[in-house]
Each structure stands twice: as structure tokens, then as C-alpha cells.
């Protein structure tokens, strides 16, 4: 474990709970893409199948349980409890256009052609594009609530910190995973446009609105 990965995991945890609290407190999921949340739930479920078979540490197992539970809870709040506030008119990204190619790629490019490894690879590839429905929804509505932009900033920062973690581990531990690094770069690059808007607007107290 290193500081980049620890801060990255905590940033990820923060993002998930900021969103969960926003929906729970405001009793509304306006401006939030349910499709992205479904993809994140799929990412965690396919990645943490080894939760019971491959014990790494208490921290690792605890975080896996928290990530799965909180993301499933978010999907539940959005599609069941506060379904009336779900903005399906703007959450129109066709996620099958993500899941199918990512699934195919996971079969073709992976470290080991075993079910667990292919599912892990699928999860890594899917996570890199899972935020697209959310970014697409913001581009359609033209703006995002401030709390939603904080969620996105924390979520985008987590994988950027993981990139630093991989640089650190490469030099100090000789650890390198090309699939995770390439997917992590794609994932972080997708946030660049948002990071720019966040830093130039939200940081100065302005609302995040995309140039019309």
C-alpha cells in the first residue's frame, strides 16, 4: 500500500458516499445517470468475485464489501425508492454500446484466459468508460448540480491517483499491469474536460455549466 493508492481509495469512497448522501438527503436523483451507476455496480460485482476466495487483507475485503453495497444501494435508490425523480429523458446513453465491445475486448485481450481473469479484465475495461453516460447526461442538460460535480471530481481523482500509485509501484516494487494502466489512462483522460470546467468554475463558487 502507498499514499497514492490509499488517498485514491478514500477519494473513491468519498465520491460514492457524496452521491449516496446527495440522493438520500435531497430525496432526488435529478442530474444523476442511473446507467452509469448500473455500470459501476457491474464493475464491482465482476471485479470482486474473489471476495470470498482470495483474502488479501481486512482493508481490502472491507472496502470491496462497502463498494458493492453502496453502489447497489445507489442503484436501488435511483430505480426503486426515488424512481419518480429519475431523469430518464436525459439519461439516454446506450450502455449496450459499452458493455458489448468491452465484453468482446476482455475475451481478446487479457492476462489469462480463465473466467475470473476475463471477468476482472471486463471490469477494468468497463470501469474506464462507465462514466460516459453521466458525462453524456451533463452535456445534454448543459449543467450539473454542485454536489454532483464534487462527486465527479472525487471519482475522477481516484483513478488519477491510481496512475501515480502505478508509477510508484513500478519504480519501488517492479509491479506493472499494462491492462490496468492503459484502462486507467483512458478513464482519467475522459475526465479532463470536466476537470478543466471544475477547476475554472466550481472552485470559484460558480455552477458547473457547459458552454451551450
Amino acid at each position: 500500500m502507498n499514499i497514492f493508492r490509499l488517498v485514491g481509495d478514500l477519494s473513491h469512497l468519498l465520491a460514492i458516499f457524496v452521491l449516496l448522501l446527495k440522493i438520500w438527503k435531497s430525496r432526488s436523483c435529478a442530474g444523476v445517470s442511473g446507467k452509469s451507476q448500473i455500470l459501476f455496480a457491474l464493475v464491482f460485482i465482476t471485479r470482486y468475485l474473489d471476495l470470498f476466495t482470495n483474502f488479501i487483507s481486512v482493508y481490502n475485503s472491507l472496502m470491496k464489501v462497502i463498494f458493492i453495497a453502496s453502489t447497489v444501494a445507489t442503484v436501488y435508490l435511483m430505480y426503486i425508492k426515488f424512481k419518480a425523480t429519475y431523469d430518464s429523458n436525459h439519461d439516454t446513453f446506450r450502455i449496450e454500446f459499452l458493455v458489448v465491445p468491452v465484453g468482446g475486448l476482455a475475451f481478446l485481450v487479457n492476462h489469462d484466459f480463465t473466467p475470473l481473469e476475463i471477468l476482472w479484465t471486463f471490469s477494468i475495461y468497463l470501469e474506464s468508460v462507465a462514466i460516459l453516460p453521466q458525462l453524456f447526461m451533463i452535456s445534454k442538460t448543459g449543467e450539473a448540480e454542485t454536489i454532483t460535480s464534487h462527486y465527479l471530481f472525487a471519482l475522477g481523482s481516484y483513478r488519477a491517483l491510481y496512475l501515480l500509485n502505478w508509477i510508484y509501484r513500478y519504480y519501488f516494487e517492479g509491479y506493472f499491469d499494462l491492462i490496468a494502466v492503459v484502462a486507467g489512462c483512458v478513464q482519467t483522460i475522459l475526465y479532463c474536460d470536466f476537470f478543466y470546467l471544475y477547476i475554472t468554475k466550481v472552485m470559484w463558487g460558480k455552477k458547473l455549466s457547459l458552454p451551450a
Binding site: 482470495n54 488479501i56 481490502n60 472496502m63 491510481y162 500509485n165 490496468a180
Partner: peptide, 10 residues
């Protein structure tokens, strides 16, 4: 095995 052990990241 070694590969599986390597999966120590979230």
C-alpha cells in the same frame, strides 16, 4: 497462485 495474489488492488 502468483497471478491471483497480485490482485491486491481494489
Amino acid at each position: 497462485d502468483e497471478k491471483q495474489k497480485n490482485k491486491d488492488e481494489l
